[in-house]
Design a protein around this nucleic acid. Structure first.
Lengths: 231, 231
DNA sequence: AATGATTGGATCGTACATTATTTTTTGATT
DNA sequence: AATCAAAAAATAATGTACGATCCAATCATT
C-alpha cells in the first residue's frame, strides 16, 4: 500500500475495488465486529462473483482487517477500543522517530508548506470534518512522506486511514480542536527551532491526545447505542 | 497471523499452504528481488490451479511481500538491505517498549523460563544454527507474547520471521555470538533488578546489533556472489 | 516517428468437484 | 418418554477448469 503523493490534495476518495469497498465497510462498522464474511453473501452484496471476493478477503487478511480460520471462513476483526489503543501505541512510538528525522532534513520550503496547510486548517476551523481530516492528513504527510523508511511511513499511513475512518463517525470536541491547533503550531515552532526533542515530544502528545479522544468517543457510542453482539 | 504459544518448542515448521511456500521462497531468495510472479507459472511450479495462487499473492500483497500494479501483475518486493534496515528500525522502537512493559509484570516463573531457555542456548552454543534460531525466538517470545498489544506483538513476530529466514543463509560471526549471549544475560539481569530503562536499552542495542550483523552479511553476499539483476 | 494490429497475461465470471464443518435427523439406551 | 451418540444432510470453504474481456507492451505497417 503506497502512500499518496504529498503535493496533490485529492478529493474524498470513492472506493473503487471490491477490496476497498469491503475494507470501508469494516472500518465504518457496516460490517460489524466478528461478523462472518461468507463469500457467497458478499458476492451478492457487491454484485460480483466469488473470485474477486475471495481475493479481497485474502488481502484484508494480510492487512489484519479480517481473521480467517481454515475451512471456517473469514470474520471481521473487531475495530474496537483495544484495536485503536494498540495502533495508537505503535504510532506513538513511530511518529516521534519519523518527526525527529524530519527535523534534520527540513528545508525552508517544507516549513512554508506546513504553514500553508496549517493556515488552511485554521481557516476551515473544523467547519467541514471530512475536509479537515484530509488537511490534517496532508499536514503529517509532509513530515513523514519523504522518510527513507517506507515501511514505517506506510505503517503510519495504514494506521492513519483507520483512525480517519473512525473519526468520521463523530464530531471533534471543542477541547480537542484547540489542542490540535495548538499542537500543530507548536510542532512547526519546534521544527523551525531545530529542536528535535521538543518536536518528538509534541508529536507524541499529539498522537496520544488524538487516541484518547477517539477511544473516548467510541466508549460513549458503545454505551449509548447498544450494538448487537456477535452473530 | 497469530503467534505460536510460547510453551511449545515446535520443530522446524514445514510450509503447508501455497501462501507459506511462496513467502518462504521470497524470503529465502529463491524468488529473486523484483521477479515477476506470473500466476500461470506459479500454478505450475506449486502444482495447483491459478485461483489459490492469486489468493496467496493477495495475502502476500497485504503483508507487503509482494507489490502489484493493476493489470501488470505481481512482483517480489526486494528483501534487501534497505528492507532489513527498515524493519530493524521499527523493531528498535517497538521491542524496548514491549520489554519495558514486561519488566512491570514479570514473575519469578517468567524469569526462570528465560533462564532455562538461555541455558539451552548457551549449551547449544550455536552448534545447530536452525535450533539456535528457534531458541532465540522463544527467548524473546517469552517477553513479548503476553503483551496486551497484539498488534505490536504480531508486528514483532512478522519481522522476526523475516530476519530468521535471512539469517539462515549465513553463519553467526564469533563476535556476534558472544554479544548475543552477553546481551541476553544482561537483559535477564536488568529484568530481575526491575530496571526497565536498562532492559529497554539492552534490547535496543540487541536489535541494532542483530540488524547490523545481518546487513553486513547481506552486503558481503551481494558483493561476492553477484546476483542476476531484475528480469 | 506515428498509427494500428497482435499478443501475453492479468482480471473477472461462471460452473462444478471436493472437502471440512455445522446442523439435523435418526436410533439405541436408560 | 427423555437423553445422548452416531449417522446423514446441509452449509460453506476450498480447489479446479475454462472462457471472456480488458489492458499494456510489442511488433508491423505506413
Amino acid at each position: 500500500m503506497d502512500t499518496q503523493p504529498a503535493a496533490t490534495i485529492d478529493v474524498e476518495p470513492v472506493p473503487a475495488s471490491i477490496y476497498e469497498l469491503i475494507r470501508e465497510d469494516i472500518i465504518s462498522g457496516k460490517l460489524g465486529p466478528n461478523e462472518r464474511l461468507k463469500v457467497a453473501d458478499l458476492a451478492e452484496r457487491y454484485g460480483t462473483s466469488t473470485n474477486p471476493i475471495r481475493e479481497a478477503l485474502q488481502q484484508l487478511r494480510g492487512e489484519d482487517f479480517v481473521v480467517m480460520e481454515p475451512h471456517r471462513g473469514a470474520r471481521v476483526r473487531p475495530i474496537d477500543e483495544n484495536f485503536v489503543r494498540d495502533i495508537i501505541e505503535i504510532a506513538a512510538l513511530i511518529e516521534p522517530a519519523l518527526t525527529r528525522w524530519f527535523v534534520g532534513i527540513v528545508t525552508e520550503a517544507d516549513i512554508a508548506q506546513l504553514e500553508a496547510v496549517q493556515r488552511e486548517i485554521e481557516e476551515l476551523n473544523f467547519a467541514d470534518p471530512s475536509r479537515h481530516g484530509q488537511l490534517d492528513t496532508v499536514f503529517h504527510q509532509v513530515i513523514y512522506d519523504r522518510h527513507y523508511n517506507r515501511h514505517a511511513a506506510d505503517l503510519w499511513w495504514r494506521h492513519r486511514e483507520v483512525l480517519r475512518a473512525i473519526s468520521r463517525r463523530f464530531p471533534t470536541s471543542l477541547g480537542r480542536r484547540t489542542a490540535v491547533l495548538r499542537e500543530h503550531r507548536e510542532l512547526i515552532e519546534a521544527i523551525r527551532a531545530q529542536d528535535a526533542d521538543r518536536a518528538a515530544a509534541v508529536i507524541a502528545a499529539h498522537v496520544e491526545g488524538s487516541g484518547r479522544h477517539i477511544i473516548e468517543h467510541m466508549r460513549l457510542a458503545r454505551a449509548t447505542g447498544a450494538r448487537k453482539p456477535l452473530t
